[in-house]
Design a protein around this nucleic acid. Structure first.
Length: 271
DNA sequence: ATCGCCTCCTGCGCGC
DNA sequence: TGCGCGCAGGAGGCGA
């Protein structure tokens, strides 16, 4: 489900409830997510939260003795519950009770997400150590993308969704950014010109930023930490619009599969 | 090194 | 109304 804007929306939503609080209780109802939750997650009990950060699509809950690493997978969400009587729902796998009385619940029907632990004295987790730059920071620039695309034969869409190249670009925003940059998603990455790489970097930044401002994209079930949907869906140009006229030129939007993922583009606007 | 395919899991919408 | 099917916002891991 969540791409970078949805994860950032979630992070911003939970941060005020978590920051400087201590964790009074960690309850795990379902240990088996994508990977089993390590038993050490219980070390969070009585720890104070120093920061709630994000790296790519990972949310990092930091304490003096280590950090919890949360990934929401396809269907995960973190919700804050301030009403104690709010019942636990099916697929609420983990609950963390905070010193301010708030309860944070990790909900994930498909269980593609994860909750991992990295002690302060351990090397950076391998899931984090091989990640590319943050798309909204300055080290993700045209030079970086040009360098990453040379001699690569993978479709450009697959390449921008590769977290070793740049983090946070998922299936929705990859199609949208390619539309904005007027580049067809199936082009071999190495055939994308320098100018087009520049446009693509700018598009990725613009689209992710705008989506964050709208609270992310809710297609089916994304909700923020308050349980509210995001509003960027109304700003989508191509994703999920196969058969509809392009908003720019009227040509019918096409759909194909790349890297096992549905992909959308305008055959007239994008070349 | 790079690429493409498979996999994990539940839920929902669609066509019959 | 019910059932089976295909598809879904991720991404590591594998074999070629």
């Amino acid at each position: 489900m969540p791409e970078l804007p949805e994860v950032e929306t979630t992070r911003r939503g939970i941060e005020p409830y978590l920051l400087d609080q201590s964790i009074k209780q960690v309850t795990v109802h379902q240990w088996q997510l994508r990977w089993a939750i390590p038993k050490q997650i219980k070390l969070l009990k009585d720890q104070q939260i120093h920061a709630v950060d994000r790296r790519g699509k990972y949310i990092l809950i930091k304490t003096a003795i280590g950090q919890a690493i949360v990934h929401l997978g396809m269907s995960g969400s973190l919700r804050i519950c301030t009403d104690k009587k709010q019942p636990k729902r099916k697929h609420d796998h983990v609950e963390m009770l905070l010193s301010n009385g708030a309860l944070m619940r990790l909900h994930d029907p498909r269980r593609f997400g994860c909750l991992l632990w990295q002690a302060i004295d351990e090397p950076e987790h391998s899931l984090l150590s091989n990640l590319g730059p943050e798309p909204l920071l300055d080290d993700f620039d045209a030079g970086h993308l040009i360098n990453a695309t040379r001699k690569r034969k993978v479709p450009i869409k697959n390449l921008i969704m590769n977290s070793q190249i740049v983090v946070g670009v998922g299936n929705i925003y990859a199609s949208e950014a390619l539309f904005m940059a007027r580049v067809r998603p199936g082009r071999a990455a190495g055939r994308v010109k320098h100018k087009e790489c520049e446009a693509l970097v700018a598009s990725i930044k613009t689209i992710l930023q705008r989506s964050i401002e709208q609270g992310g994209t809710t297609l089916r079930d994304f909700v923020n930490s308050d349980g509210e949907p995001g509003y960027f869906k109304q700003s989508l140009f191509v994703y999920g619009k196969a058969g509809e006229p392009c908003q720019q030129c009227g040509t019918t939007i096409k759909q194909l599969v790349l890297g096992q993922r549905s992909t959308f583009y305008c055959p007239s606007c994008q070349s």
